[in-house]
Amino acid sequence: MSEMFGRVVGIASDLAIPFVLILIIGYGVAKRVKIYEAFVDGAKGGFEVAIKIIPFLVAILVAIGMFRASGAMDFLIAIISPLTDLIGLPAEALTVALMRPLSGSGSLGLVTEIMQTHGPDSFVGRLVSTMYGSTETTFYVLAVYFGSVGIKKTRHAVPAGLLADAAGLIGALLICKLVF
């Protein structure tokens, strides 16, 4: 059962990109666009954009890397855990909740480790799986996306992003409690 499911998901993700490519190129041909010239013309921008985001990547990733290495996460968990205990959030899941907006690879590492220890089908295993999929690495996205176009004043982006993360994580907890 699980093997077949894995195959179906695999096929779906294998087909997604070719489908988009065929759709766009096919439509271009139908509309008589000079597809090769258009492609090359658009692709020229790739280098520039990738180079332009380097300073912002360095700024945010260095800060996050230092934060993780310092062990500050444990302090943060000690401060917040009395609150999250009240809503019945397991301690392991809190580490994922705090790591998720900061680092994709960091939180994936935590989720994998938790599932190795407690089993993927334990409550906390299901909960952290749900949490991982329901939000994104907010600070990375904000820094890189705003940085790429030179926005310096981000206005309400940080509070809005964090509120959405919090809603996703609390939602994950409530939904998992109901379902599992």
Binding site: V20, L21, L23, I24, I25, Y27, G28, A30, K31, V33, I35, A38, F39, V40, D41, G42, A43, K44, G45, G46, F47, V49, A50
Partner: peptide
């Protein structure tokens, strides 16, 4: 990847997609 998708996007733009 950036170059690849920006190229594909350009086709989508010029075709009106």
């Amino acid at each position: 990847v950036m170059a690849l998708w920006l190229g594909i996007m350009k086709i989508a733009e010029e075709s009106g997609l």
